[in-house]
Design a protein around this nucleic acid. Structure first.
Length: 561
RNA sequence: GCCUUUGUAGUUAAAUGGAUAUAACUGCGGACUUCUAAGCCGUUAUUCUAGGUUCGAUUCCUAGCGGAGGCACCA
């Protein structure tokens, strides 16, 4: 429809002899301003030598009755041309959406594209905290938005199982008396890491000891360390899997830093012109490109994260049989470093560098400040989820509509958390606030889930009271909800193109609000109402839209709650 | 100090350069013999400062102030 209007306006400009201008046709912020608004008169006013509103008059005069489904055109404000669509248009859109069923909202803009999305990336031996939960939520929604465009999405998780943090933890394990034979948990490892990190910082002799452990982890030259390392790594990874189960995450491929290390090192050494030596280390002179200079291979000959990341790009391509695009989603503390990395990759793997995109999302902060697994000031993801799940369980039991099962409570808790995470632009930091997450009212995941469940319920009722489906009569004026509903596919596409899941959140919230208002004013399950069959169609499409929209956010839509 | 990024009601957020800056939470006030009250309706309040570009600036540019992240062997 947008394209139809655009073409008609362009033709009108030609008719009027006005030179080509760059104008836009879009949904206005308010429904009272029509279904589509065009700013052409303001943009072209200067070239036409006419005041915007006068020009708008002329454009409208040549457009009138020209465009199918446009019922009325108005000029408003400084010279906007507002298009009001006819009843038939909405009826047609709703009918089409209903026929598409679960294909509704999908399109093929990325068909045939293999796109790798890397996200979550927790580090073994450290806690899986709410920051990782944030990363996972963002990455999952990006992945699903890509799937909605028909892309072949490959989910990838890159876990840092070597590096100084591991050496810290191994040192701490010894201090805590954790041995290969003792039974210990992931949170014991988290404590061990805190102890190691503190000792590393405060005690010079421990520092060299830990660096020594680090080197041995890389080259696996010490049997004792190998055994402890393998045991700790296994406990960590098993723990992560239980977290993935709770949050509903699954990945096509796992990559590990330990496997990337030798490849990264070889890569740096085989490109001495890109990574010259300086002070005993191999560096990339980012300063020559307006970036920071970074160490890729330290003076002990160990690869840094940067070198391993170079190898990772290649490893992904090898493991997945190549890819068309690669998205890496991490917290934004990596932003500067990733620019350097991409610049360096341009010399080593130019074709991969060109396909690589980094999304740096905001950080999760505590009211007391930045989270730090180094000092142990973290909120563990599972603790947090358990707390919200408990609150959801209480709420479900309080309302008494649905039976409270662990699965339902979990779905609602994750709905609340993921909604809160994706509600704003992803590059914004969020302050962790339990009381806010515990609220299931207003702008929230449960609000959308509730609306969905409510529709399921009223549709059941409609069937019971005998609202017949099939032929329907439409009321003369479209309901407001109809004017919002047909925009869904555009919203999804825009969210994907701009990497902005929050526009989906905003859209679904608006849609749910419109439906709840519709529900409050219109009786749907009423066999005596001539419009009831059409209202049922509307309700079905809204339900599908909510379900599909929530899915792109990684949120489940229960039928009852 | 340098680089990047960010600054919107009391709070959390929204607004491809557009119209009267939009929602939610909180506060206050309503409706319902009615399909799920996690709902609906009403109401108060907001663009950090100073310039600039533009028909038009929360949005773009410059400077300042505040927050955040980064700045060589951590990830």
């Amino acid at each position: 429809m947008e394209a139809v209007i655009r073409t008609a306006v362009e033709e009108a400009l030609v008719t009027l002899g006005i030179p080509e201008v760059d104008f836009c046709v879009e949904h206005p912020g308010e429904l009272t301003h029509g279904d589509y608004a065009c700013n052409v008169a303001m943009v072209a006013a200067k070239a036409a030598g006419l005041p915007p509103r006068v020009l708008a008059e002329q454009i409208v005069a040549t457009l009138v009755d020209q465009i199918e489904y446009v019922e009325r055109i108005e000029i408003a404000g400084p010279g906007f041309v507002n298009f009001y669509l006819a009843r038939d248009f909405f009826t047609l859109e709703i009918t089409r959406a209903a026929a598409l069923r679960d294909e509704w909202g999908m399109n093929l803009s990325e068909e045939g594209q293999k796109i790798v999305v890397e996200y979550t990336d927790p580090n073994p031996f450290k806690e899986f905290h709410i920051g990782h939960l944030f990363t996972n939520t963002v990455g999952e929604s990006i992945a699903r938005l890509g799937m909605m465009q028909g892309a072949d999405i490959k989910r990838v998780n890159y876990q840092g199982d070597v590096g100084l943090h591991v050496a810290h933890a191994l040192y701490g394990m010894k201090q805590l008396g954790i041995t290969v034979d003792s039974s210990f948990t992931a949170s014991d490892l988290g404590r061990a890491y805190v102890i190691g990190a503190a000792a590393y910082r405060d005690d010079e002799s421990v520092k060299s000891l830990i660096r020594d452990i680090n080197a041995k982890v890389y080259d696996r030259s010490d049997e004792g360390i190998n055994a402890l390392y393998d045991a700790g790594r296994a406990v960590s990874l098993a723990y992560f899997e239980t977290v993935y189960q709770v949050i509903g995450a699954s990945f096509d491929e796992y990559f590990f830093e330990s496997a990337m290390a030798p490849l990264g090192k070889a890569l740096v050494l085989s490109h001495p012109e890109v990574f010259p030596q300086s002070e005993g280390a191999h560096i990339f002179r980012g300063e020559e490109y307006g970036l920071h200079t970074r160490v890729f291979l330290n003076k002990e000959g160990l690869p840094t994260y940067e070198a391993k990341e170079l190898a990772l790009a290649k490893a992904k391509a090898d493991a997945l049989g190549g890819y068309d695009h690669s998205i890496v989603s991490t917290a934004k503390e990596i932003n500067e470093y990733f620019k350097v990395l991409k610049c360096a990759m341009g010399f080593v793997y130019p074709e991969l560098a060109a396909k690589t995109e980094h999304i740096g999302h905001g950080m999760v902060r505590l009211t007391s400040g930045k989270m730090s697994s180094r000092t142990g000031e973290v909120v563990r993801a599972l603790d947090f989820i358990a707390e919200i799940t408990e609150a959801a369980d209480v709420k479900i039991k309080g309302t008494g509509v649905a039976e409270s099962t662990p699965a339902l409570a979990n779905a609602i808790a994750l709905g609340a958390i993921k909604y809160a995470t994706l509600k704003g632009a992803i590059e914004q930091d969020t302050v962790f606030d339990t009381t806010k997450a515990l609220s299931f009212e207003g702008d929230s995941g449960p609000y959308l889930q509730y609306t969905h469940a409510r529709i399921c319920s009223v549709l059941e009722k409609a069937a019971v009271v005998g609202v017949v489906e099939g032929a329907f009569t439409v009321p003369p004026e479209p309901y407001q909800i109809e004017k919002i509903m047909y925009r869904f596919p555009d919203v999804i596409e825009m969210a994907w193109n701009n990497r902005t899941p929050h526009v989906v959140v905003g859209y679904l919230t608006e849609l749910a609000g419109a439906f709840n208002s519709f529900y409050a004013h219109e009786k749907i399950a009423d066999a005596s109402d001539e419009y009831a069959p059409y209202k049922v169609v509307i309700a079905k499409v809204v339900r599908e839209t909510l379900k599909k929209g929530l899915w792109t956010l990684g949120i489940e839509a229960p039928d009852k709650m």
